[in-house]
Every structure is written in structure tokens, then in C-alpha cells.
Write a protein that binds this DNA or RNA. Structure first.
Length: 886
RNA sequence: GGACGGCUAGCUCAGUUGGUUAGAGCGCUACGUUGACAUCGUAGAGGUCACAAGUUCAAAUCUUGUGUCGUCCACCA
């Protein structure tokens, strides 16, 4: 009857085979639960095809797999949909770096050849990523895999673009945008990063006859100044406001108007700002308000434009040097100060950003739309999280505090620049011919149309991800009744999705944009819940990076400790929205836990005829021992606790409960007890407990549980079902009310107390002793469980149980909950006296505390009665124990 | 400048309506190998819950302030 498992669990022997088996079984596809009423959908945040997955991805896969497996086992029509993101700029930049090392550039290669190269790179990355996802055990439905740049997703992108274009939401215009001179592309506001650095602040006048000294860190841009702005309250400059001066600035003629703007800080520099409309966002706005001329100084390569005399053609840096030199020659510089400044950098290549005016495509986030009752897409997106839209409950962000962050960002959102000048991405679906412009989902008829060269911000396509992935082919997507239709069963079945699980670092980049794009396009929310995880850091709390050499690669950990242990290290100890430190040591300790489960199972399978046993009806409760009933009740409450924690995204707490049960309850107590107790119900009880435990563990550690399961059931997979919570309730009531858990706890405490007494008295572990117990009214309970008291490492060979009796002088003595025990013939007088002294001191301290509490009239009067009574009860119990000890 | 978060045992962190002597894992100390497991077992040490004031019969928990570390947003010419 015994079944043999290996002595320890060697993960890598089994994992790949098990994964293949799952894939073949069809359980990763929602059709397996097709009769289910409710569906449960998560779309995988598509990893960028820029390389390989890291620990952060591993965490994401683990959290989502837990949710997916849990809901699948609970008979939801469950879909976890995989895909990858072309990640426009990121991928192009990466490939550009590679070909640079090969001595060429994208301009030398030409658009089509370069794009072929990028596609090849993306394909290789994709294959690696898919393989890594499988290694992590992710139960993704690969039959539905999507890509942000495939044909179907392109149709979605073009369709939404056209809708927005027709609604006047997408507009083309010349504005100052963030320009990366290296990428040769625009960047959205949130793609700009800031780095602190020291910069020189130059104080000077444009010319000798100009009355105001200005201060700037970018003297070269002053070639394009058309105004000086001062604070209207600033008495120093009040009289100049409105006047215009013609100046000769280092050899160039400028017309400078003095304007007032309340945003100017009087304390900074001289309180006077040289306004350069073409190369500063703020200045551009002032220019609009004051009808100032815009002079472009810096071109898209970061060099000075034609028409600036000796400066033309110089790089910004060179021009700065020359301007400063000329100012010095003219003795116009008053002082140079070193200040802390924030340098704007491109988030992809760290090149300093050059703000400049450029003809680009924007989404107008503030335009009021009739189809949304006069609300803007921004307002709809705020409402979706605040109160709910389109008849849906409000979107719930976990942890809740990020909702505030979301509102703050959304309310301050400015128009979104969606066009990029890179090649890799969705090309803007707009064509020009002579003076005509055509925007359409497919190219226009006729000759001579030229397509707009710009491509779209990568977040435009990923913003459509929850619904675009539910189309199977381009023709599934069409515009109907002013909204986007996805005409598939998948869309009808699986949208909106239940939860979007992702890192808090892309709340704005992605989550917010999905809400904007989805509510606009399909008039529905993309997801009901947002679960945000933290970043995975190294053991010192630093970001992992190759240059620091502190990277822990999941693919190194998996062969070493197993996928299950790697997953646990990401699931236990993590709190929503909070960063998680991880170390190899931690993963190792979870390997030990997995092995413990393996060995408990191994023992149980060796010693009992275990079969899959999902309900309690085969167990004759009357024939159960106390420990049997105890472990059953613990198993049932574990089922409830774990289910509730997972539903509430409390992955860590659920994991800790499972660990505590497995190690501290099942292995340390019940299995030990079962070695000595004779009970006709042992096999049934063990079958039920093991069946339930393996299932409850399965979402966390799918591999090891599935392997052990194979020994229990040859016909089905563990992946199939979750232990029922409701069936248990009725069964459980039958014996839960009798205080099983308190009774067993008492036995545990007596045993621990005896072990403790032996240990403190330095009694040799191998020394057998006689014990006498005065059990009082608990005599039946103690007698019933005398076998446990004798067997569980108490070293008792002869046990006498009486209701009460005389004090026995000179022997080890202990008392707990009114029950007294003596260990005969093992004493070390000194040690025992010391131990009892300690215990007495402790009790006296406790009694003192409770007394002072009860003496406090205010407490007795104000506190709820049950709390006061509990204190009183405790007091008398402690007093009794104290007397006995004395 | 604005906001948010952390500060609990040597380390990593739980602690969800304020109510037993504040918990877990790892580490540490002592002892132990009886056939599931040394990837193990038993026992133990270890905390003024960052600080201060307040509310309350009662505060790790609520309020205010301070310190400190970290993050995000805005951006300074």
C-alpha cells in the first residue's frame, strides 16, 4: 500500500514535464470551465521585447498566477492572457546600440532594413520571454497570445485614432515639446527624467543700455529671447512693464518687451526672467498669452539654427561658450553663481532634453465631448475611480492610497503628445496629398498620398490592451454607434477584466492611460480592480542592476532551489504597493519549506492508504481522537482563511497561514500524534487533510503539489478544483462548538510545559521519568489523551493521572491552567528552585498588572463588561497558580 | 515647493474596526540523529513598537508636531 516518494524534493527533475502536461491538458484555457457562470480575467502586463525577464517580472507572474489558479480552481471561467509589448523607443534604442557597435546606424541602413533588424531582435526577445514565463509555472493561455504591434492590434490602434481624430480629440499643432536630440524624437512629459546637478547661473544684461539684469543657466538660448518677465508686484521693475527695448545682444538684434507674470519668483536670480518662447514650456505659454514672437534657436540635432551669425551650426554647448566669451569681452556679466539645478533627461538614453517647437500630434485631454454629456476624457477617467462610470462600480486601487496619487496626476494632466519620430511602432494613420489630409483605418484610394512619418507613443497601443487582446483578427474590430466594437465571444465573455496587476511605477504610464483610452473607446472600464505591487530590490534595498552586480536572476534560482521556492520568496513577506527585498538566503529557506511539505506527504503516503478525499462524510467523527478532530477543524478554518486572504490580495498572509499549518500544526503535532495514537479514522482524516492542504497550496507552489497529487489520484490533476468552503460549514458545526481547539491547546501546553521543565532542569533527553498529573475537572480529557502526554518528546514512561493529591516535595513541579504535574526522580534542586522562582516572579508581575487595572474605577466603569470579566477571570486563575507554586 | 510611504527582536517583515504578557521567518544560544525530513527536532535568549504632546478607562494602533530614511509629482529661469 505504501507509495514511495524520493527522500527529498528535487524540483528540476519534474518541473518542465509537469508544465508540458498542464499545457496539454487544456487547463490553461477558459473553455475548461465553460459552463461556469462567472468569468475571471487578467491580462498579463505585456513585457517589453527588449531582453529578458528579471525578478520583478517573476513577482508579477507569481501574483497573477496565484489569482488565476485560485479562481480557476474555484470554477470561474478563467483567462490569463499573455502578450508582449513592442516598446517603441526602448526597443529601437536597444537595437541602435547594437548596430552602433557593428559600426553602422539606422540612417545608414534605411527604414525598412533597420525595421527588419528590430523585428528580428523583438522576435528573439519574445521567444526568451515566453520560455521564462513557462519556467515560472505561469498558467497562461498561450493560444490567445497577442502582441502590441501585430495586425489585429494595429486595427484597434488605427480605429481608436480615427475616432479621436473625428471627435477632434487628436489634433496636430506646433507646440514646444520635449525633444531628445539623440533619439531624434519627442517624449511625453512623463518620459522625461530629472537629475540633480550643479549648474552655473549667469547674471548679465543683454546690452549696456538695457536696464534690467537677468539670470540664466542657458545663455545660448537667449539668442531667441523676445521678452523679459518680472513679477507684477516687484517694485524694482514695475515702471518698465509694457515697454519694449531694442538691444544688441552679443552681435544680434533683439526686441525685448517687458512683461508681467505672477509666476516669476522675485527671490530667484534678479527676479527677472529672459523669455525664450521656443525653448521652454513655461516661456512658450507666456508668449502665447502676450502675443510674443517665437524665434527658434536650436534645431533638432541640438545645434544652433541658420541666421545666428557666428553661432550658427555650433552645438548648444559650443554656442554657450561663445556667448559667454562675448559677454565677458563686453563686460556685461555681473556674476556667475553655482546653483543646484534639475537637468531634464531622456528616460531611455539619458541624453539632456531640448525643449523646442515642433509640429506634433496631441490628444486634447480637456475637450468637452457631447457623447460624454459635456465631460472631457480626463473627467471621465477621474470619475471611473471616484464614483464609477457607465453603470460600473468604481475602479478599486489596491493599496488604496494610490487612488490619491492617481487623482492628483489625472487632474494635472496636460495634453498628451502621442507622436514620435522613431521608426519602430504604429505609424500615424494619416495621409497627405497636396492640401488634403486623410485620416483612416486603411490607406486612402488613389495615387499620390503620402503617409505621415511619425509613429505613435507605445502607450497608445498598450492603452487599448485589455480589449484589443480579445479580438482574434482585424475584422473583429469596427466602429459602431460611436464606439469601438470587438465582435468576439472572448470580448463578451472576458471584458471588463477583473484585475490589473502591475507595478506602482507604471500607474501613470500605463494604468491611467488604459482608463483614459478604454472609457473613451468602448464606453466601459478596462478592469474592476488594480493591484499594485512594489519593486523587487536586493537584500540591501537597492535596485538590482547589472552594473552594480547585485542582480538575482530568477533563471539562476529556479534550477538551484526550484520554481516553487522562488515563487514563495516573492509571495510571502510582500505587502501590496511596498517594495520587497529579496536574497538568495531567503529563497533557500523557502526551498526548505517546500521540502518539508514534500516530506510530510512522503511520510503520510508511506504509512497510510491515501486517496483523494474532498469531504468529511466518510469520516466517523465519533471514532475520532481529539487530535483528529483538532486537525480537521484546523484544516477547515485554514480553507476559509486562505480563500479570504487570496480574494483580498493578501498573498503574504495566506502564505503564512499555510506555512504555519504545514509545519507547526500538521508536521509538528498531528503527524507526530498519529505515530502513537490508534484511531480507526486515521487514514480518512489524513486523506482529507492532505488533499485539502495540497489544493490550498497549489496556487503558490503548483509544481510540488501537482507531483505529490499524482501519488494520490491517477485520474485527475490538482489544478482542477478548490476545497469547498460551504460544504464544510455544516459538517464543521457538528463538532466545532465543543471547544476542540481549546482542548487540544491545553494538551499542547501541558506537553510544552513538561518539555520546558525538563530542559530548564537540564534533564538528559534520553532519561525516562515517571510523571504524576493532578488534572482536576479535566481528568477525563487528560486520561483520554495520555498517550500523547507520554509520547511526544516528554520522556515519560510511567504516567499516573489523578483528580488531585498531596504536594510532592523535592520533585520537578509545574502547573498550567489549574493542572499540576510532577516529574519524579529527575530533579536538580537548584535548577528547579530557580525555575520556580522565575515563574513566581512572572505570575506576580501579571497579578500586579491586572490588579492595578481592576483597581482603576474608570476602567471598571467604562470598559465593556466582557473585557472586565476576562480580566477578573485571569486574575483568579493566576492567583490560584501562584498559590500552588508557593 | 507639493504629496505619499517606512521607522516594531541582530536581519526581513506581519500586526484590518484601540482591549490577553506585541507575533512570524531567518539568524543566534544550548541540547539532540526514535526510520518522513539535518533542506530536521526540542528548548531558550532577544523589543520603552523612532521621538514628543494630546484624545481615551485603555494607544504599536487615533490626532498633532518633530526627527530620519525613501519614493512620486511639479519644476526654478
Amino acid at each position: 500500500m505504501s507509495k514511495e516518494l524520493a527522500k527529498s524534493y528535487e524540483a528540476k527533475k519534474y518541473e518542465d514535464e509537469i508544465y508540458k502536461h498542464w499545457e496539454k491538458s487544456g487547463f490553461f484555457q477558459p473553455e475548461i470551465n465553460k459552463n461556469a457562470e462567472k468569468s475571471y480575467t487578467i491580462v498579463l502586463p505585456p513585457p517589453n521585447v527588449t531582453g529578458t525577464l528579471h525578478m520583478g517580472h517573476a513577482g508579477m507572474l507569481a501574483y497573477e498566477d496565484v489569482l488565476t489558479r485560485f479562481h480557476r480552481m474555484n470554477n470561474f471561467k478563467t483567462l490569463w492572457l499573455p502578450g508582449t509589448d513592442h516598446a517603441a523607443i526602448a526597443t529601437q534604442t536597444k537595437v541602435e546600440k547594437i548596430i552602433k557597435e557593428e559600426g553602422t546606424s539606422r540612417h545608414e541602413m534605411g527604414r525598412e532594413k533597420f525595421l527588419d533588424r528590430v523585428r528580428q531582435f523583438a522576435q528573439d526577445s519574445h521567444d526568451t520571454i515566453v520560455n521564462q514565463c513557462k519556467k515560472m509555472g505561469s498558467s497562461l493561455d498561450w493560444s490567445r497570445e497577442a502582441y502590441t504591434l501585430d495586425e489585429t492590434r494595429e486595427r484597434a490602434v488605427n480605429s481608436v485614432f480615427k475616432m479621436m481624430y473625428d471627435d477632434g480629440l487628436i489634433i496636430r499643432g506646433e507646440r514646444v515639446i520635449n525633444w531628445c536630440p539623440r533619439c531624434h524624437s519627442t517624449l511625453a512629459d512623463d518620459e522625461v527624467e530629472y537629475k540633480e546637478n550643479k549648474t552655473k547661473l549667469y547674471y548679465f544684461k543683454y546690452s549696456k543700455d538695457f536696464p534690467i539684469t537677468i539670470a540664466t543657466t542657458r545663455p545660448e538660448t537667449k539668442l531667441g529671447d523676445t521678452a523679459v518677465a518680472v513679477n507684477p508686484k516687484d517694485d524694482r521693475y514695475k515702471d518698465f512693464i509694457g515697454k519694449t527695448f531694442e538691444v544688441d545682444f552679443v552681435g544680434l538684434k533683439l526686441n525685448i518687451k517687458i512683461i508681467a507674470d505672477r509666476h516669476i519668483e522675485m527671490d530667484f536670480g534678479t527676479g527677472a526672467l529672459g523669455v525664450t518662447p521656443a525653448h521652454s514650456m513655461v516661456d512658450w505659454q507666456m508668449a502665447e498669452e502676450n502675443n510674443l514672437e517665437t524665434i527658434k534657436v536650436i534645431n533638432e540635432d541640438g545645434n544652433i539654427h541658420e541666421g545666428f551669425g557666428e553661432y550658427s551650426g555650433l552645438s548648444a554647448k559650443e554656442a554657450q561658450k561663445k556667448v559667454v566669451e562675448n559677454l565677458e569681452k563686453a563686460k556685461l556679466i555681473e556674476k556667475v553663481e553655482e546653483i543646484d539645478n534639475n537637468l531634464s533627461l531622456c528616460y531611455r538614453c539619458d541624453t539632456p532634453i531640448e525643449p523646442l517647437p515642433s509640429l506634433q500630434w496631441f490628444i486634447d485631454v480637456n475637450k468637452k465631448l457631447d457623447k460624454f454629456d459635456g465631460k472631457s476624457i480626463k473627467e471621465i477617467s477621474v470619475q471611473a475611480v471616484k464614483t464609477g462610470v457607465f453603470g460600473r462600480e468604481k475602479i478599486n486601487i489596491v493599496p488604496n492610497r494610490f487612488e490619491k496619487t492617481y487623482f492628483n496626476w489625472m487632474e494635472n494632466l496636460r495634453d498628451w503628445c502621442i507622436s514620435r519620430q522613431i521608426w519602430f511602432g504604429h505609424q500615424v494613420p494619416v495621409w497627405y496629398k497636396d492640401n488634403e489630409t486623410y485620416c483612416g483605418i486603411t490607406p486612402p484610394e488613389g495615387d499620390g498620398w503620402i503617409r505621415d512619418e511619425a509613429t505613435l507613443d507605445t502607450w497608445f497601443s498598450s492603452g487599448l490592451w485589455t480589449f484589443s487582446t480579445l479580438a482574434q483578427k482585424p475584422d473583429d474590430i469596427r466602429i459602431e454607434n460611436d464606439k469601438l466594437m470587438i465582435d468576439t465571444d472572448d470580448f463578451r465573455n472576458f471584458h471588463p477584466t477583473q484585475v490589473l496587476e502591475t507595478g506602482y511605477d507604471i500607474l501613470f504610464f500605463w494604468v491611467a492611460r488604459m482608463i483614459i483610452m478604454t472609457t473613451y473607446a468602448i464606453k466601459d472600464i478596462p478592469f474592476q480592480d488594480v493591484y499594485l505591487h512594489g519593486l523587487i530590490l536586493d537584500d540591501k534595498g537597492k535596485k538590482m542592476s547589472k552594473s552594480k552586480g547585485n542582480v538575482i536572476d530568477p533563471l539562476d534560482m529556479i534550477p538551484k532551489y526550484g520554481t516553487d521556492a522562488t515563487r514563495l520568496s516573492l509571495l510571502i513577506g510582500c505587502t501590496p504597493g511596498t517594495d520587497l527585498k529579496i536574497s538568495e538566503e531567503k529563497i533557500e529557506s523557502f526551498r526548505n519549506l517546500v521540502n518539508k511539505l514534500w516530506n510530510v506527504s512522503r511520510y503520510i503516503l508511506q504509512n497510510a492508504n491515501i486517496k483523494s478525499q474532498n469531504n468529511l462524510s466518510n469520516i466517523k467523527i465519533k471514532e475520532c481522537t481529539l487530535s483528529d478532530k483538532w486537525i480537521l477543524s484546523e484544516t477547515i478554518s485554514l480553507t476559509k482563511t486562505v480563500s479570504n486572504y487570496i480574494r483580498g490580495y493578501q498573498f503574504s498572509l495566506a502564505g503564512e497561514e499555510l506555512r504555519d499549518f504545514t509545519w507547526n500544526k500538521l508536521a509538528d503535532w498531528y503527524v507526530e500524534a498519529s505515530k502513537f495514537e490508534n484511531s480507526s479514522q486515521k487514514e480518512e482524516v489524513l486523506s482529507f487533510v492532505l488533499t485539502t492542504l495540497l489544493k490550498l497550496w497549489h496556487p503558490y507552489i503548483p509544481f510540488v503539489t501537482e507531483i505529490i497529487w499524482k501519488e494520490i489520484s491517477d485520474t485527475d490533476l490538482i489544478i482542477e478544483s478548490w476545497p469547498s468552503e460551504t460544504d464544510f460549514n455544516n459538517e464543521w458545526v457538528k463538532f466545532s462548538e465543543k471547544g476542540i481547539s481549546e482542548q487540544f491547546k491545553l494538551i499542547q501546553e501541558i506537553i510544552e510545559s513538561i518539555r520546558n521543565a525538563r530542559s530548564e532542569n537540564k534533564v538528559e533527553p534520553s532519561k525516562k521519568v515517571k510523571a504524576i498529573i493532578y488534572a482536576g475537572d479535566k481528568i477525563d480529557l487528560i486520561k483520554e489523551n495520555n498517550i500523547l502526554l507520554k509520547s511526544l518528546r516528554t520522556g515519560i514512561e510511567d504516567l499516573e493521572i489523578k483528580e488531585n493529591g498531596e504536594k510532592i516535595e523535592g520533585e520537578i513541579h509545574g502547573s498550567i491552567e489549574g493542572i499540576e504535574f510532577y516529574l519524579i526522580g529527575a530533579i536538580d534542586q537548584e535548577k528547579e528552585a530557580e525555575r520556580i522562582k522565575k515563574e513566581i516572579a512572572n505570575l506576580e508581575k501579571m497579578i500586579e498588572m491586572i490588579k492595578s487595572k481592576l483597581d482603576n474605577k474608570a476602567f471598571v466603569e467604562n470598559a465593556p463588561e466582557e473585557i472586565v470579566n476576562a480580566e477578573k477571570e485571569k486574575l483568579s486563575k493566576y492567583k490560584e497558580e501562584l498559590n500552588k507554586l508557593k
